[in-house]
Amino acid sequence: MTALVPFFDGHNDFLLRLLKTPAPREETWLGATGRGHLDLARMKASGFAGGLFAIFVPPASSGPPPDFKALMADPPYALPMPPEMTHAQAQPDALAMAGLLHWMARAAPRDFRVCRSVLEIRSALEVGTIAGVMHMEGAEAIGPDLDALHLFHDMGLRSLGPVWSRPTIFGHGVPMAFPGSPDTGPGLTGKGIDLVRLCDDLGILIDLSHLNENGFDDVARVSTAPLVATHSNAHGLCPSPRNLTDRQLHMIRERGGMVGFNFATFYLNTDGRADGGPGWDTMLRHLDHLIAEAGEDHVGLGSDFDGCVLPDLIGDVTGVPLLFEAMGAHGYDAPLIAKLARENWMDCLDKCLT
């Protein structure tokens, strides 16, 4: 039996699923239900050694969540942009998800730990404990005075994306559309510039994944930290506004940053569809492109587990070892796979977190 490759994942939405699932929390986290993409048992069985766990506040809705597979089945498409959300609307769910991340550690103290530094992450990995790092996808829960950022930082927040695919008081996100360019409008606001500077001061990574092109460039201009997109793919292969152009990948390389390879089918398929059909060849073409343009020291995984439609070949977190096998068959040697699996993330986080 092939030994598991321990890996660090740049993005998942398990906290939102945990918040919204009607089943008892213990069943969703500790039980072997097989639902969703993640739970503790499957993470341990797959080599999931750690990752960024997103606090994401979804658009207010009284109905069921959107069926992205249906909405993105017939490109071209342009999904309506959700309206801006105030910090008063966003904070309750954001605080609840921050609490759930800590609850996960209390519920399984030997198996899961909330980590605030690379030293803590490495220490967890050495003893086989999964390292959970708090991330925020869309900064709506941070009010205009930025005071809440200090509170979330004390809770463990170490990575933050100023926007999701809707405007915030800090900047503008790219739409969920296909095909399209990331050049979709204005960049950071004045408050967004203040937010980036404070994140630099506190040692909070700025995630570029959902920012439009002007916002990306504004972060590059204002921040002194490495440029990081936690879960994005190659625009040259799939022209979604969410994917990164070669120019952006070059900037990430030059600034010593990272791009996390996203498993979402609508950012993999050349036609932007959300079906589960992408094979290893499609996924490996994106990895090849990211490595060629950003460099092999600046690419890792950013799965988007529990937040996307996955390729059928992956299915859930237990499919990641199969991806590593496909990388090996494609010609990636063991040192390169180790870089992509975890070492590049560790090196990047070491430069970003304080």
Rank of each mutant, 00 (worst) to 15 (best):
A78C: 13
G143N: 13
V320G: 02
E325W: 01
G300W: 00
M251I: 01
F305E: 04
V309I: 05
E120K: 05
V174E: 07
S303T: 13
R255E: 11
S165T: 14
V228E: 00
K191Q: 13
N233P: 04
L195D: 06
L146T: 03
K191F: 13
L287V: 14
F7T: 07
P109H: 11
G31A: 06
G236P: 01
G180Y: 02
M327Y: 06
D347V: 03
I206D: 07
P109E: 11
I204G: 01
I142V: 15
D201T: 15
M72N: 11
R255G: 06
V5A: 00
D67F: 05
D9W: 00
D288A: 06
C238F: 11
I204K: 05
S232Q: 06
F14M: 13
D312V: 03
R255D: 04
K351D: 13
M97S: 09
D67K: 02
L268A: 06
N243G: 06
A96V: 07
I204C: 08
P321G: 12
A3F: 01
F7V: 02
C115W: 05
E137H: 12
L290V: 00
W103V: 10
G276M: 05
M283H: 09
N12L: 02
F8E: 03
L146Y: 10
G319T: 13
D306K: 11
M283I: 14
G203I: 12
R113L: 03
L198K: 11
L313E: 07
T21Q: 09
T129D: 05
A148P: 09
S46T: 12
S181D: 15
R242H: 14
D13K: 04
D154R: 15
L301G: 04
K339A: 05
